[in-house]
Amino acid sequence: MRSDQALLVREAGPATASDPAPGKDRIRATRRRRASKIAMYALLIIMSIPFVYPMLWMVFSAFKPANEIFAIPPTLFPSEWTLDGVARIFTVQPFAQQYLNSLYIAALVTLGSVIVGSLAGYAFARIRFPFASVLFLFLMAGLFIPTEVTIIPIFRWVASLGLMNTHVPLIILPILGPASIVAVFIFRQFFLSLPVELEEAGRLDGLGRLGIFLRIALPLAGPAIGAVSIMKFLASFNMYFEPLIFLRSENLFTVGLGLTRYQDHYGEPIHNTQIGATALTVIPVVIVFLLAQRQFVEGLSRTGLKG
């Protein structure tokens, strides 16, 4: 044994001062990783400027005089700070009430879309019934029908039910109309990717179809729920066309419709006030996205796993 060790030492040769120590290798690797991370963050910051600058310009323009907003070349910071535009946000229009209208409508639409979309998506993915593929094909064909084509019969139907100038059509139509098809598709694709063994284990435990959906499938559908929630909340909160058709009272307006009504006595837009109100409408959308961005990305990435 000792002769073998001596032979290995002679073949390896004596250690020299030029051989790098293991600690130096780790230090160099750490420095390389740190440099690459700094370079990556610097590149991301530079690439984000075209997206961040308009947001900052919108916020600071709310504090500019109206004639400075269209200055050429445009400036980010106002040369003269003023609160006139911001102060009129809640006086020219009942903006607070319109803001609350949009928030609660978007919340109800998001909740209803998640419930309906998850049930329908699970049915198409896991339940075998006659003509399931044909029905799903017809459902997806609804995506090709523009909203403007169907708005006249929907308007007549809403008027016949006495629901004009109410929020009911703004809640029901996004949940049960063509706008919900994307939610059904996302949930269907997600439930198709779940292992069949999970359902078999649930049946062995005595769960029925509804129990499997509520206790197994739905709790695992966090990514799909996050993706659908962000899309539906964003679309509903920024809704403009449907409120324009169905609403008449300013107190029932949503923010999308209310933003177009910031006008002076001559009918000209009050640009700094309008921009300030627009900046406020971005806040809930950003909050919802930050809370569910990971689930949003994962949910969209899993929609194409199975057909």
Rank of each mutant, 00 (worst) to 15 (best):
F138K: 03
I245F: 03
R32E: 14
L163R: 09
R248S: 11
I270W: 04
F144N: 07
Y104A: 06
I49C: 10
P65M: 12
F95V: 01
D264I: 10
G202V: 05
I212E: 09
V59G: 03
L210H: 09
G162Y: 07
L100D: 01
Y122V: 01
I105Y: 08
A29W: 01
M164K: 12
R26E: 13
Y122S: 09
T30R: 13
I283N: 05
L100F: 08
A15R: 00
L252F: 04
E298V: 03
A35G: 03
D205E: 15
A15T: 05
F191P: 08
Y53K: 03
I245S: 03
G117H: 06
N238G: 10
T16K: 11
I245E: 00
V182K: 03
I127R: 04
L135G: 08
A71V: 14
D4W: 06
F124I: 01
K37R: 15
I46P: 03
L76F: 07
Q274K: 13
A235F: 07
A15L: 10
R128L: 02
D205A: 15
V168S: 07
I172D: 00
A71H: 06
K306N: 04
S229V: 02
S36L: 15
S133T: 10
E11S: 06
R33T: 00
L300D: 12
T30C: 01
S113Q: 12
F136S: 03
A227Q: 04
V297I: 15
F77Y: 13
F289Y: 15
V255E: 11
S249Q: 14
S160P: 04
L220D: 02
T16L: 15
A277N: 12
L103D: 09
P130A: 10
E200S: 06
M58H: 00
E148S: 12
L305I: 13
E250P: 13
D4F: 14
V134T: 11
A21I: 11
F241R: 13
T30H: 03
A201L: 10
P178E: 02
A235G: 13
K37F: 14
T82F: 06
L252A: 08
A106H: 08
G208I: 01
D205Y: 14
S229L: 02
A227D: 03
Q97L: 15
F129C: 07
P243M: 00
I186W: 14
I127V: 14
D25W: 15
I245M: 09
R31S: 14
I245D: 01
L207V: 09
G276L: 06
A42K: 12
H265R: 14
A62K: 01
A141M: 12
F144Q: 12
P153H: 10
L218S: 07
P195G: 10
A201I: 02
T82I: 07
V228R: 01
Q97E: 11
I145D: 13
I152S: 07
Y41A: 11
Q97W: 05
F187K: 08
G112H: 04
D205L: 15
R248A: 13
F253R: 12
P65I: 10
G226T: 06
R33S: 03
T278D: 04
A277S: 09
L44S: 13
G85W: 08
R294T: 13
F289K: 07
I181Q: 08
S3R: 05
L280S: 06
Y266I: 05
L8C: 08
P178L: 02
F90P: 00
H167D: 08
A29Q: 09
